[in-house]
Design a protein around this nucleic acid. Sequence first.
DNA 1: CGACATTGCTAAAACCTTTTTTCTTTAGCA
DNA 2: TGCTAAAGAAAAAAGGTTTTAGCAATGTCG
Lengths: 350, 350
Amino acid sequence: MTNENTGKGRVTVRRIAEEAGLTIGSVSSVLNNKHVERRISPATVAKVRETAARLGYMPNINARRLRSGSESLNTVTLAVITSYEAPLTLVNNIIKAIRTSVDQERKEGSPYHYTVTIEMFPAGDLGSVPGLLAGSHFNAAIITNTTPKDDHFLQRNQLPYPVVLVNRATPGYAHVYEEPEIGASAADMLVDAGRKRLAVLHGSPVTQVIDNRTSSFMRQVSERLGAPVHEIVAGTLTESAAAEAMARFFDGGKRIDGLYAVTDGMALGAYHAIKQAGLTIPDDVAVVAAGDYNFSSLFDPPLATVGADPREQGAEAVRLLLDLIHQRRSRKTDVVMPGNPSPRASVGQA
Amino acid sequence: MTNENTGKGRVTVRRIAEEAGLTIGSVSSVLNNKHVERRISPATVAKVRETAARLGYMPNINARRLRSGSESLNTVTLAVITSYEAPLTLVNNIIKAIRTSVDQERKEGSPYHYTVTIEMFPAGDLGSVPGLLAGSHFNAAIITNTTPKDDHFLQRNQLPYPVVLVNRATPGYAHVYEEPEIGASAADMLVDAGRKRLAVLHGSPVTQVIDNRTSSFMRQVSERLGAPVHEIVAGTLTESAAAEAMARFFDGGKRIDGLYAVTDGMALGAYHAIKQAGLTIPDDVAVVAAGDYNFSSLFDPPLATVGADPREQGAEAVRLLLDLIHQRRSRKTDVVMPGNPSPRASVGQA
DNA sequence: CGACATTGCTAAAACCTTTTTTCTTTAGCA
DNA sequence: TGCTAAAGAAAAAAGGTTTTAGCAATGTCG
């Protein structure tokens, strides 16, 4: 049984009321299971239920929340906005950080309720997020995994609500971003370990963060070695795409002794391809990656990383956003996350 | 500058209007940047802006969405509900599946707009999710990572809107769950490889899925070997907790030749501990895990898994939910995901 | 048999916005 | 001066829902 609502717009309580020959109020009482206290007769209850089911009634959540409860008065809607293609690990950390902070506030007696929504956009098309410009869908947002194109969009259109960008700095917004020189630190690790023939492994989408990691690495290598860097480009930022790209690279007969992967997930893929090619880490190829996961120390051999702790980064972004929302201007408006180098066995360090 | 709203309830446009000696309509025009077309004087614009900023105005999103746009008429709010403690990998897959399905529908001319919200609850306290019983916050939900306690809650309180449980089957709900016998398949893999001294590695929270994986493994081992199974319990379901628990186990002088990890992330932790202990995989210890990630084939050695593809599982849950929402009853109401065994090197198979 | 409850429903207010319509002032011009 | 036009702001309507107050008919009881 498909619903019988034939094109006359969405089914509302009013529509049900008309159809059933009743008042909006009575219908509402039944639909909210208040028919006992409101003394609605069983026959009426049945009729309303039947009609609602037949028409495929779906309540308008906005109207419902608007009307009911002082609770709605203090509801703040937060959006986490990310591109489709990017890995969700950072988003996870942000979501968890939001829920943690919010619960904390709650315990401290804040009257606010928070709702968290997720919006995704095709990389480069941030503008397609509904309600983004008007602010009609949320009160504040954390935006991440943007491409340079998206950042330009943000610069052209100043969003009229509190926003924290987890990304490269963009004028006019609060932001949290990892120290830009982590690619350089990675280069240092490899060069200091005596490696000469280096490669960088990256892929699409080329978000600002990825671009940053890549370019600072290449710049530093060029500065210290004066040698070119192999650029190995995977189709996506996934582990398996990384493995494939590396395998292709080795099949091409190319040889390197040091590799920088822009995410540690990609490094895992690279590990596999390297071992597959009969090479050892770090003796034949030293590997270092930017750290997104928190378990790269469990790789075999433990993976050297340089990078900001993504959990800390998520927490910092949320802290910033809540400060903006509550107009606590005492706090700073942007945060650079230090990229702690963790030299580990994959570059020959204990 | 903290906002000056002193406890008189939330700041609304009305409040701003009073404070500024204007009408609601004028205030609204300014706040929506319509002051040019609506011919509001610059002085008034400034006054409104100043007042809004001073009071810390935050628009009521529900009221805004209710009023503006036919778009709001066809908005469906979907919730993804999960426990805090559980890993978000399944949730990721669900979110991505939602966005994909929804875009697909969109292209096919569906008039609906979808909003996705995330709700989290402390494991065992599903009831604390706001709006859960009344359905006042969303039109439909996918609920996952529940504990047995949560499932009882769901059974006692039938939720008055479409719900898909990603979990063990619960009467009265549509559900997607992985084939219950995957623990048994894992046991078979280990026993068939000639392993006799087996252990299972799990941790909190003990969701239905985890419980299922564990108990079917133990049952099958007991049936086939008649021998007891070591139960190694990690603090959480994370990689590092798994590594620690395994290290403790080995430190206790215990010896095993086969291990079943309830998630492949935990298997990664176990790998590390096993190698740390000077043992090799699979010669000394064969390892098999239930597959949550999609890169376990890149582990060293490639990890044997039995498990449902989490991407497929997410997609299936979303398909089910949309069917329920649109009352397409032709489709089935529950789905059992087959647990495809992937024997790999970690159990001595190519 | 009149006061009073109970039943089952209707009517209307309220939630907070946005948008459209209407009204009042002021300015411009002949 | 008398009229029109423009500017600026007020007023009202609309959006879907829940809840409160109330009304008419019927039943109960002293």
